[in-house]
């Protein structure tokens, strides 16, 4: 008897609980936008000129992070990841800088991007042909390439480039930096390539289920290798843009590219399981990361805290993803 009374009383509570679940799921689904808004509000409260600050971050800091994070995102989409982007950026931009300082600007940039693609191809071959786990292969390559840059530069720096080269990073058009235009044209190309073409479909399929994709006749080795080549080329592009911006090529460039890119990719919502997410998600992830860094700078937090903060961000974004999947399942039942 008692039980039936309790059941009747519980009915409205169940509805409330269902609504609570729906609300939590909604919050988790749009958590990225909410986080971004909170960070923006905090930084705007502290900054002296909020609008100028936001414009600076978007047009001068975000493009670099965006370009190399896209590469990481693509690698994550195939179910792997690319930890070598930092050293690839350093190696290829230093190699390109040797030519650019001699006056061969276009040739230097082309060589730089080509070297990036070749290093990426090597990563891809290690992963597909030698079947080494992606993070071991790219982490090992990170060591090797970083060592190679140290040998190549021998502790020296290359600086004082010509204005013709520096214009690619310092030019302005309609009040926005040329960097932003470069980043957005890369974004548009990638969006088209991975959203509208067969190759893009194959990439998503490879990430979701590599065995099934292989059995349906797709050359998954080719897909993965090309994705790592694109990743390497994008890292090299980011590297050469950094060189143009800082007017200096050095072996230490890009020490924490991998960490930032992974954080941006994960918080953007691209799943490490592969096949879910995309470069569009990463744009939001990158905005969160650059505004977070900016916010820490404005609040005068010591730069040494950055590694710690990035680690926490990666953890939080992984937890959010987990919770969202949990609530989604609970609502469907």
């Amino acid at each position: 008897m008692k039980r039936s009374v309790g059941f009747e009383l519980k009915q409205p509570r169940l509805v409330i609980r269902q609504n609570m679940k729906r609300f939590t799921w909604f919050v988790l689904k749009y958590s990225r936008i909410i986080i971004l808004a909170v960070i923006l509000i905090v930084s705007s409260c502290v900054a002296q000129d909020p609008l100028q600050n936001i414009k600076n971050v978007i047009s001068l800091q975000a493009p670099f992070v965006m370009i190399y994070s896209f590469g990481m995102t693509l690698a994550v989409l195939t179910g792997g990841l690319d930890l070598s982007i930092g050293s690839v950026a350093a190696f290829s931009s230093c190699a390109g800088a040797f030519l650019i300082i001699e006056g061969h600007i276009v040739l230097g940039i082309a060589v730089c991007i080509l070297i990036g693609a070749l290093l990426g191809m090597f990563n891809g071959i290690l992963i597909t042909r030698a079947k080494i786990a992606p993070f071991i292969a790219t982490y090992g390559m990170d060591w090797v390439i970083r060592g190679a840059v140290y040998i190549m530069m021998g502790g020296a720096m290359i600086y004082h480039f010509s204005d013709g080269f520096k214009i690619i990073a310092e030019g302005m058009l309609f009040g926005l930096s040329s960097l932003l235009y470069i980043a957005f044209s890369i974004f548009a190309v990638l969006l088209f390539l991975f959203g509208k073409t067969i190759f893009g479909r194959n990439t998503y399929m490879t990430g979701a289920n590599i065995e099934a994709t292989k059995l349906s006749g797709v050359d998954t080795n080719f897909v993965i290798t090309v994705v790592y080549m694109i990743s390497g080329a994008l890292a090299a592009t980011a590297g050469i843009l950094y060189v143009a911006r800082l007017d200096c090529a050095e072996a230490f460039l890009g020490r924490n590219f991998g960490l930032i890119a992974l954080a941006a990719t994960l918080i953007g919502g691209t799943s490490l399981q592969g096949g879910k997410g995309g470069v569009g998600n990463t744009v939001i992830g990158v905005l969160i990361m650059v505004f977070l860094i900016n916010c820490l700078n404005i609040l005068r937090v010591d730069i040494l805290w950055q590694d710690f903060v990035f680690g926490v961000v990666i953890l939080i974004s992984a937890m959010i993803e987990k919770a969202r999947a949990f609530y989604e399942e609970a609502l469907q039942n």
Partner: peptide, 29 residues
Amino acid sequence: LVGVQKLNHFVATFATMSIAKGLALVACD
């Protein structure tokens, strides 16, 4: 993180890697 929260083991330990490194950097300045 790995056992109870069932997070991807690589992500979880990669994040704690940068947390530990960050703490070490902050501690010794």
